[in-house]
Design a protein around this nucleic acid. Structure first.
Lengths: 367, 367
DNA sequence: TTGAAAGCGCTAACAC
DNA sequence: GTGTTAGCGCTTTCAA
């Protein structure tokens, strides 16, 4: 788990090779729940400090000593105590993540962060924000920081709170949040992405496009809506307040927003939902109204969560570059942990149109 | 976050009421990243121990002193350092959870565990097992145990490993795992649930039912298959090896398993998938074969993950009592932490048939 | 009711 | 290259 430590558990019998050594640590194994560095050091006949250096791959130990120590650590199943490491001012090779796991997009992002972290030999611990409680997760950041080297935060809203915490020099990177202005953040180019979506619908021939908004406490939602409005006027599309229906990035919100659009005297021929999840809700509403997707109503989402491709019909959407975003967030965080100034506090990543089955020409089949 | 502490962050200015007090801790706030118990104690003019007792709601402090201390702690934004608590042998009011978050069922279960934990004033930290790595998460349990009071484990396979760890007296509860025999575990009644599913199909009139197996490293998968086989013979249904198609609880596995069933000379009229996710895969396969669900092929899943209700058509399935399972797991774990012997090491919870739109009479519409 | 001392496991800083 | 010392923030144990 730790660089150079490789202490994956395996049965003691399988690795034991020096029988006299076994006599020394065998009783220890049974008594102490988990072996400590002191035990490793004692068996190896070195000081704790030397054992520490060896296990952590730090300079200042002869190769022979290092190998012996690492072998012993492996054998008795030594696992570094991160709490102690952190408490004594060291690093734990652990990053914390805070996010709402029940949100499809966030959940997927978190998994990507986990992969990105493991790729650079870090582990990830997740705190799942409760859906109900939208108040700043105050001490949760502290909590994670007590055991991790830094924290990646994916809040369901923008908050000045993090800027405050940052003064305490806790390494924090946010995703999808631009509000505390010069604050380290990763974000997809939501404006450009939404333009892509609108352009796609426009090129298919749609002149009357409905929009389901997202949770506008987030910059991503505001940017997508802005692009919608801008392109409506740029393309000379019909634009009116009634075509903008309030959603919240959730399934139910999308469902109800779509219902309102469908109830218009002149409904749109296509709907652009601010994210995939609300598009799913919209699809339900469209079907309930007795209409077909895409024949009677085109539908496009945003995010490209895995589910989008699995639906029938598969959802046309704008893909956020989750792996890249995750990697960028991890790298930025590690840079901060290492004390390196970030080149830019706000990193914007490009999006991509993914055409699937829910968008066709108005009133028609196929493209 | 901690009982009796209630240290939700709020702007200092808003809560400050004693100006001379402010002088004392204001500079402290700016220097130290996070205030410690020592600072609380110093401001309050008491010993660290007294502050500890007050903040943790322990006896041995006069009411007046306690109130004063708690007020100060609130004001300077004191947050207990769990690492230090754990290191010094205390409890952290934190539980750890290990599971594969990309599995729909596990993800949902984890969210429920979070709610259950918060309901009893505990917080939850999650370690997401990587999909690729199926080896025992050895030190991960240790890792969580270094900061949490106990760990709930949801493994994608059964393993003796946990039994080993348990000898170290780390409080561990598993879910969906029965292998290390007398080991604390929560599990749904998969056998009875699968019987419910089969009975439902039988009552609709299906005589030839295909089964998509789960990951048989798990007891849940084995129990469901056993129920399928038992009821086939009990009801005198056609039973043959070709009707049992190997899946793995994953979407793709379900897709391919269903394809094999559809390619039979005499395909079944209904498919029972060992879980919802493989049922989704099966649905894709069925449609690709030009058949309709449920008119041409009935389909029933297992788990009742949220997505099941949102699909079109909505999936008939067997509901696992996730909230109850989560609560049971948390309670059992807390009991172990408190040193209370569990009444029974294996707690089995009832399942429930949820009839939706994917099951009808063979070859027919409606029931 | 309160406090002092010791120590959890580890790492920085400074010896040698 | 190696060891010693001090201390992270907290709780236990024991003393007052």
């Amino acid at each position: 788990m730790r660089a150079g430590a490789r202490i994956d558990w395996q049965p003691i019998e399988a690795t034991r090779n020096a029988t006299d050594l076994a006599k020394v640590f065998d009783p220890v194994m049974r008594q102490r729940p988990v072996p400590t560095l002191a035990e490793v050091a004692k068996i190896a006949g070195v000081s704790i400090m030397t054992a520490s250096r060896a296990v952590n791959n730090r300079p200042g130990v002869s190769e022979r000593t290092r190998e012996a120590i690492i072998r012993i650590a492996d054998e008795i199943g030594y696992v570094a105590n991160r709490a102690a490491q952190k408490l004594s001012g060291g690093q734990t090779h652990l990053i914390g993540v805070i996010g709402q796991l029940h949100t499809g997009f966030t959940a997927e992002l978190v998994l990507n962060i986990g992969s990105a972290a493991r790729a650079v030999d870090y582990e990830m611990l997740v705190y799942s924000l409760p859906a109900e409680d939208r108040s700043p997760p105050g001490n949760v950041v502290d909590l994670l920081n007590q055991v991790a080297d830094g924290v990646i935060v994916i809040l369901p809203y923008e908050s000045e709170y993090l800027a405050q915490l940052n003064r305490s020099h806790i390494p924090i990177v946010t995703i999808d949040q631009t509000k505390p202005d010069p604050f380290p953040a990763i974000i997809a180019d939501n404006y450009a992405g939404a333009r892509l979506a609108m352009q796609h619908l426009y090129e298919l021939g749609h002149k009357r496009i409905g929009f389901i908004t997202g949770n506008e406490r987030l910059a991503s939602a505001r940017d997508r809506r802005r692009a919608y409005a801008d392109l409506c006027s740029q393309f000379g599309l019909e634009a009116s307040d009634e075509l903008v229906s309030k959603g919240d990035f959730m399934q139910k919100g999308g469902y109800e927003a779509a219902k309102r659009l469908l109830a218009l005297k002149r409904p749109p021929t296509a709907i652009f939902a601010a994210n995939d999840v609300s598009a799913f809700g919209a699809m339900t509403a469209i079907r309930q109204a007795g209409l077909r997707v895409p024949e009677d109503m085109s539908l496009i989402g945003f995010d490209d969560i895995p589910l989008a491709a699995q639906l029938h019909p598969a959802l046309t959407t704008i893909r956020q570059p989750l792996p890249q975003m995750a990697r960028a967030a991890v790298n930025l965080l590690l840079a901060m942990i290492a004390g390196i100034e970030a080149p830019s506090p706000l990193i914007t990543l490009p999006t991509q149109l993914v055409v699937r089955e829910t968008t066709v020409r108005p009133g028609g089949r196929g493209v």
